[in-house]
Design a protein around this nucleic acid. Structure first.
Lengths: 209, 209
DNA sequence: CAATACATACAGACCGGTTGGTATGTAACT
DNA sequence: AGTTACATACCAACCGGTCTGTATGTATTG
């Protein structure tokens, strides 16, 4: 097994500082000499893992499914459906590998923080672009700030996973997804709202100036 | 300084596993003998810290301000205002002490996980009760599930703090608070909505420079 | 062609420092 | 005198990192 893959799995389970090189080496089936031939130290291995594993993970799970959609609102609803169905994953027991690392390392190691921040920023900016395109096409309310929405969505997704992980309870995650669906009705133009939240005022209020 | 206080501060900065007993002892001004006289091991000290420091922290910051409000919607808006103003805190550089610990320890140590989960559950349930009372009084839409809303709000708050901490950027936190304000319009009855989302206010908010 | 020289890609023993935890000592209070 | 409440010295385990050794490939040169 590849060193980066082994590092990913081990770190996902035990955190970066809780993972010994020995454990990664054992899993990868290589020796310490091999590791230190390719990487100067443990930190560099971790950073490389972030760059090559986590970046692609976020892209595949959260960005690409939306980029292929004509309508970001329905795309996000579909993503919510996906989460609801396939939420039995390790993702909810072990948490999001990216956010785990972010919370553990951000205030401890600056190089780590920057790598992770780059992944989050890419995610937010991709989502922002998708939403902006949705605005142009009339799916997303034009008067809203897509930068702000993108940040809110990313924060909510990570918060949801984190809460469910701590409680070891998928139902919490489902409740959060429900909240996300409600939120989508705010940012959608009236004709693309699902009226999810309720009957009544929310769906009727939109008076675009 | 009290041992628990010292443990709180040190763990908040470096995480539980990243904090040595030596560091806590130095800060508290006591010796190892004193510590092991009161606690059987490091884990027990950490758990006691969760019970006695973090529980009260959540209660003071997030629960009590709402319990004193007649209307939970305006109460939550006021809480958002508070965050917006006093967000220069260590809270955004070091993150939420509770969530830091939750993300670091949940999948590693079961006793820790349970203590932290109890704090989160208390928070969610308190918020749920507050919202339910708001429903009875006509401030919060009756057709909505207050359990789900409470979970969503807690997840979003923690996600927001975590994202801002990783980016070391308060503006991200502000953007998330903005999203929270929008969300409040969903759960409020029409007469208590701020029309925050659909008015021009949002578009004029300071975007990134 | 073949001998040499050198670079690459590992393997594995070893080391210094740190850490959680323990064992023993001791002063004060009851 | 005995219990409580510490203080201090010490230890075994672990961990990141280094050092030396070695097998293989490749460029150079007589």
């Amino acid at each position: 097994m590849c060193l980066l893959q082994a590092a990913y799995e081990e770190i996902h389970c035990n955190g970066f500082r809780g993972t010994s090189l020995e454990a990664i080496l054992r899993r990868a089936g290589v020796t310490k000499g091999a590791l230190y031939h390719h990487f100067p130290n443990k930190n560099a291995l971790g950073c490389a893992m972030v760059d090559e594993m986590l970046t692609s993970g976020i892209r595949e799970r959260f960005i690409e499914p939306l980029e292929q959609c004509e309508n970001p609102i329905t795309g996000l609803h579909a993503l919510c459906d996906t989460f609801d169905e396939a939420a039995t994953l390790e993702l909810l027991e072990q948490g999001c590998p990216l956010n785990n690392l972010a919370q553990e390392m951000s205030s401890v190691d600056e190089t780590f923080r920057q790598r992770i921040e780059f992944v989050f920023r890419t995610w937010r900016e991709s989502l922002e672009k998708i939403l902006a395109r949705g605005q142009e096409k009339g799916y997303v309310r034009r008067e809203l700030n897509v930068t702000q929405i993108a940040t809110f969505i990313v924060a909510t997704v990570e918060g949801s996973i984190g809460l469910a992980k701590n409680a070891q309870d998928i139902r919490l995650f489902r409740q959060c997804i429900e909240g996300m669906r409600q939120y989508l009705d705010i940012i959608a133009t009236p004709e693309w709202q699902t009226k999810y939240a309720s009957s009544g005022a929310v769906t009727e209020t939109p008076s675009i100036s």
